[in-house]
Computed example of a mutant assay.
Amino acid sequence: MEWKVRRKILTPDRERPWWEHSALAPSPLLRGETIRIYVGGIAADGVSSIGYVDVAANDPSRILGISQEPVLVKGRPGMFDDNGVFPASVTRVGSQVFLYYTGFEICEKIRYRMFGGLAVSDDDGETFHRATEAPVMDRTDEGLFFRGGPSVEPEDGRLRAVYSAGSAWEFIGDRLRPTYDIYGSISADGAVFPPAGRPLLARQAGEHGLGRPQIVRADGLWRMFFCVRTPDLRYASGYAVSEDGWDWTRRDDALNLGHSPAGSWDSEMVYFPNFIDTGSRRYLFYIGNDFSRGGFGYAELASW
Rank of each mutant, 00 (worst) to 15 (best):
H129Y: 12
R293K: 07
M137T: 15
D181W: 02
R36P: 14
S264D: 11
L30I: 15
S185W: 02
V152I: 15
E133Q: 02
D13W: 05
I35R: 04
G197C: 06
D82I: 03
I182P: 12
S164D: 15
N83S: 08
P12M: 03
E2F: 00
P77L: 03
I287A: 05
A119L: 01
E155C: 06
G184W: 12
G197N: 08
H21S: 12
G294F: 01
E2V: 10
D141G: 09
A161K: 08
E126K: 00
H259G: 13
G41N: 11
F225E: 15
I63W: 02
P60F: 01
R158F: 01
S280D: 15
V85D: 09
A302M: 05
R234W: 09
E155P: 14
V152Y: 01
I186Y: 08
E170M: 12
V192T: 15
G143R: 06
Y271W: 06
V73Y: 05
P273R: 02
T179W: 10
N289R: 08
T249S: 09
F80R: 04
T249E: 10
W3N: 12
G32N: 02
S22Y: 01
R223K: 11
D59T: 09
R203W: 04
S167Y: 10
M1C: 02
N83P: 10
T127P: 04
P194V: 07
H129A: 01
V39Q: 06
I9K: 01
R92W: 05
G263L: 07
Y180H: 10
E15K: 10
S48K: 03
Q68I: 12
R293P: 13
R36K: 06
S187Y: 06
L233F: 11
Y38G: 04
A262K: 03
F115K: 09
Y298T: 13
M114A: 13
D141P: 13
E108W: 03
R6Y: 06
I215W: 00
L10E: 07
L201F: 04
Q214H: 13
Y283R: 08
A191W: 00
G166F: 05
G116R: 07
P213G: 13
L221Y: 07
K8H: 00
A302Y: 01
S67V: 14
F86E: 15
D290C: 14
G297K: 04
E207T: 11
L233A: 14
C107H: 09
G279T: 15
D13P: 13
G258L: 01
Y239G: 08
S151D: 13
R111C: 04
E207H: 03
P178H: 03
T91L: 06
I35T: 07
L72G: 03
G197M: 03
D252L: 07
F145Y: 08
Y180W: 00
G220C: 12
G263Y: 11
E153F: 07
A44T: 10
G149P: 14
P87C: 00
T127I: 07
L210G: 01
L210E: 09
P199D: 11
N274D: 14
F296I: 14
I35V: 05
V192L: 02
S303C: 15
R251N: 10
L176I: 12
I35D: 11
A165K: 01
E20H: 03
I63S: 07
F275W: 08
W265I: 07
Y239D: 11
W18A: 13
L64H: 10
G263E: 00
P28C: 01
L72Y: 02
F104M: 10
L221I: 12
P12G: 12
A43Y: 06
M114N: 15
A43M: 00
R229Q: 15
A202H: 11
